[in-house]
């Protein structure tokens, strides 16, 4: 399906980056502020959906040459492995640990396995949502 809409295409080019950056901010902010893997993932997915609306499937496929099914699977695996990582240290499945580190620019930041887990959720959401959208739009 094509929407040959010049205004939409021009706007999309700029908007997609803004939305993407925002979504990544949301992903990182999740621990202390509203946000997190789910919301971040959904926002990223909606940015990609905007691309699909503005351009046709083939063009988007060239812009982002990724198989989103695999991204989704990687996300679920990441979340699972975080859980099993805890088992390796002899604590119950999915026990999360965290530590404060001083990162350049960001300052004192809590870094934990919970973030890796959240990243897995993020990837799962992005992968799944885009897979759904893509499957449908390719079929139309």
């Amino acid at each position: 399906m094509k929407f040959p809409d010049v205004i939409l295409q021009t706007a999309a080019k700029i908007l997609v980056f803004i939305i993407m950056i925002y979504s990544i901010y949301i992903l990182f902010a999740g621990h202390n502020n509203p946000g997190g893997g789910f919301i971040g993932g959904l926002i990223t997915a909606s940015a990609i959906m905007l691309l699909y609306l503005a351009f046709d499937v083939e063009t988007v496929g060239e812009i982002i040459p990724l198989d989103f099914k695999i991204i989704g699977a990687v996300g679920v695996m990441l979340a699972l492995l975080t859980g099993f990582g805890a088992v390796l240290f002899g604590v119950p499945f999915l026990t999360q640990v965290y530590q404060y580190v001083n990162l350049p620019l960001l300052g004192k930041t809590g870094l934990g396995t919970a973030f890796v887990f959240d990243l897995g959720v993020y990837l799962a959401v992005v992968g799944t949502t885009v897979t759904i959208i893509r499957s449908i739009s390719e079929d139309l």
């Binding site: 509203p34 789910f38 959240d118 959720v121």
Partner: peptide, 12 residues
């Protein structure tokens, strides 16, 4: 869990 967002802490 080192998180300030309770909802997120519950989730992850």
């Amino acid at each position: 869990s080192g998180a300030k967002n309770m909802v997120n802490a519950i989730l992850v």
